[in-house]
Design a protein around this nucleic acid. Structure first.
Lengths: 249, 249
DNA sequence: CGATGCGTTGATTGGAATCAAGCATCGTGG
DNA sequence: CCACGATGCTTGATTCCAATCAACGCATCG
């Protein structure tokens, strides 16, 4: 299996064989495994290592005193769990494993050594951060202004894009893995699990999706995108970053 | 009047006199003025300069096809209008002036020259970016899980903190400027202007705030924070960044 | 076998949107 | 000077989307 961090960064910069090897080595040094529901980093922690998700799904979330909880980002293999660890700042939110995950723990020194030795990688990481920030913004737009059905359609579109890039999408029938309970999905969307259930049925009734056995089939992608007003350009997953990078040297 | 960028970065790193002068010089080279309602950067633009807000209020926003609109961040003097311009990426959102504003246009080369000559400033900018990202996340939590009154209380708490740091808060009675129409505030909160109006009255009836002539008086800050479940630590405005920085060299 | 977790469904409530109208202030031009 | 429209604030009536409350089915699992 190829390294998911490499898979992702390839979209953001041209990587030589030795770049790839170095990146893979970086994330192979220390790998930890977390059980479902366990926090990888917790609010208030000042973590000393950078966590990179290698397999499984995780979620960045915050919660209020009374238990209300909001997932801010769904993390897929290749994603960073913590940003800003480099300046030793306490986390303002938590990251938890949705299901069983494996996580690379990278020493900040090793990380800085890598980009010191391969300064052209800085651009890739910057694009990566840019893409993450753009997702966060699109998310806020969804939470603030999209209706339940639009929001759900939008997450599905986004996840489909991100999963395809990772190559995790390709299961015979083209269905995507969706290893989230409706409860968890509700925290992502900012709704109730009950209402998630009804909205799912709505999307199904409209012939847009089918969901079974934790697998999501997108039956009418154009339709789904239309409902969600989804435009994938904010994700920068088309590889234009790498192309741009190449052109500009 | 002192330079607002300097005022802000002082929180994130110790700045020498010449640091301050250099930063001020950076933002003094080209200053533009924008009228209320005009966009400073527009979605799709690939701007060639970095925009730093010097005076007035601006907003980062996205909108949907049918006119629904969501403000993602309120920008105050010292804030950056665009992130990621350094990699020449098209904006995925717009930034508009709420009222009359002045904006510094900084050449990327000048910017990189500055941090090249004063590498310790990198930390300050990194903290700044961190703080902005944390705000974005807290925002998403609000939009997803806080009720109307909680959301409104939360923005007011956040703005109060940010304005105080800038020194713009100090008007005799301690009231804050709030140069937004209820319509604009509605786009910030993700609600309707009608409902904003009612929620404002609610906050007033509860003895928490008073709003008159575009000036916000916080009558009971503890109460307001309790309603909002507001914890200012995510803003990193307490100066702990600068202290940490000094300690770590 | 009961326990638990997850999904499904129905009935009801409630919060915010929507629709609609009225009123102030203000700048502008006849 | 007043008429006028524009803009922003306020309020009421109504609608509707999603939350809440509650129950049940159905797996899996120890």
């Amino acid at each position: 299996m190829t390294n998911p961090l490499v898979t992702k960064l390839k979209l953001f910069a041209r990587l030589s064989g030795s770049d790839k090897a170095a990146l893979a080595a970086l994330t192979d040094a220390h790998v930890r495994r977390y059980r479902p529901g366990v926090d990888i980093v917790r609010e208030g922690d000042v973590s000393r290592v950078v966590h990179v998700l290698l397999s499984g799904w995780a979620g960045r979330y915050k919660h209020l005193n009374d238990g209300r909880r909001q997932t801010l980002a769904v993390l897929l293999p290749g994603d960073f769990c913590d940003h800003g660890v480099l300046v030793g700042c306490p986390m303002d939110h938590s990251v938890g494993a949705f299901r069983e995950v494996t996580v690379a723990e990278v020493e900040p020194a090793a990380f800085e050594g890598l980009i010191g030795a391969r300064p052209h990688l800085v651009r890739a990481f910057r694009w990566e951060a840019l893409s993450a920030a753009a997702m966060q913004r699109e998310w806020a737009l969804s939470l603030g202004r999209r209706s339940a059905i639009e929001r759900l359609a939008h997450v599905f579109c986004e996840l489909a894009c991100r999963l395809r890039v990772l190559g995790s999408a390709t299961t015979a029938d083209g269905a995507l893995p969706l290893p989230l309970t409706q409860e968890e999905l509700a925290d992502v969307i900012g709704m109730t699990s009950v209402h998630i259930n009804r909205t799912l049925k709505q999307l199904h009734a409209d012939g847009l999706i089918a969901l079974r056995d934790r697998r999501l089939s997108i039956l009418d992608e154009d339709g789904l995108r239309r409902v969600a007003q989804f435009d994938p350009s904010y994700l920068h997953l088309g590889g234009e970053a790498a192309r741009l990078d190449a052109r500009m040297g």
